[in-house]
Computed example of a mutant assay.
Amino acid sequence: MAIVASGAADLPVPSPGKGIGPLLRGWREVRKVSQLDLALRAGSSARHISFIETGRSRPSEEMVLRLAEHLEVPVRERNGLLLAAGYAPRYSETPLDDPSMDALRQGMERLIQCYEPYPALIVDATYDVLAANRGMAMFLEGVPASLLTPPLNAIRLTLHPEGLAPRIRNLRVWRGHLLDQMTRQIALHRSDALRELYEEVTAYPVPDPDPGEHAGGDVSPAHFALPMRIEHDGQVLSFVSSISTFNTPMDVTVAELAIETLLPADPATAKYLHSQAS
């Protein structure tokens, strides 16, 4: 369930407080894109990109947004680029409980209900759970109330020794997968809350490998994606995680929402979930 390992601080992500030139150059280096490649993507010239990065030319607001789009800069950071270039932020940050978000919130809640009996949940940028469907209930059985007190955090719930961790049969592999994802998120978003969460969960004890888990990786019929293998009432279930985000968000809050769905990785898991639902 959810998303990162050491090394986030070593990634060359641009730091806030710099001018537009160094910031754009930093994002270009993060994406490993040359000035020429970026220019071709953005309909500009390598000379103009070079002038922007060295401060010899001030990009237009449209150019800042175009370059940010081709560099896949997170929406929150695009506001920072605009401010560094002397322009007003373009993207609002609307609380999810604002009346203007009613249609979005209700639509997402209906969507995760449609996945039942398969588990699905909605998380924010720090993996706090904003909503979950009834398929998630089986994961919460036996979890102490301290871990279920709002805001429920998907990463903490998954890796905490009193959470799902003891039930996950391939915990070491799944833990590494989550930590790798989290590292990338920390590097891109520079979030103190995410880094604190990362430091917390990496301090949790790591158990010895499960007998069903060998050095080469996970043992599972799901060869198309890494599964999470978790036990429920003596039955080992296998899930693959699918994460959906909005394609063209115009609001920071919306850009940082994600819907995670846990899909059965084998017919036995699907059959078990449907039997539990009935």
Rank of each mutant, 00 (worst) to 15 (best):
I3V: 11
I3Q: 12
V13T: 14
L23N: 03
R25E: 08
R25P: 04
R28E: 06
R31D: 05
Q35W: 10
D37S: 13
L38S: 09
A42Q: 01
A42W: 01
I52V: 14
E53Q: 08
G55N: 09
R58M: 07
R58G: 06
E62A: 14
E69V: 00
H70W: 10
P74G: 08
E77Y: 01
E77V: 04
G86F: 02
A88Q: 13
P99L: 09
L104Q: 08
L104V: 09
E109K: 15
R110F: 01
Y115M: 09
V123N: 07
D128E: 13
D128K: 09
A131H: 04
A132E: 07
R134W: 02
M136D: 08
F139I: 09
S146P: 05
P151W: 05
T158K: 01
L159Q: 03
V173K: 07
H177R: 12
T183R: 12
Q185A: 04
I186E: 00
R190E: 04
L194D: 00
L194N: 01
R195E: 14
L197S: 10
Y198C: 01
A203P: 09
Y204N: 06
P207A: 11
D210K: 00
G216S: 14
G216P: 05
A225E: 13
E231M: 03
Q235H: 10
V236I: 13
L237D: 12
I243S: 15
M250Y: 05
M250P: 00
V252K: 02
I259L: 11
T261M: 15
A265K: 09
P267C: 09
S278C: 14
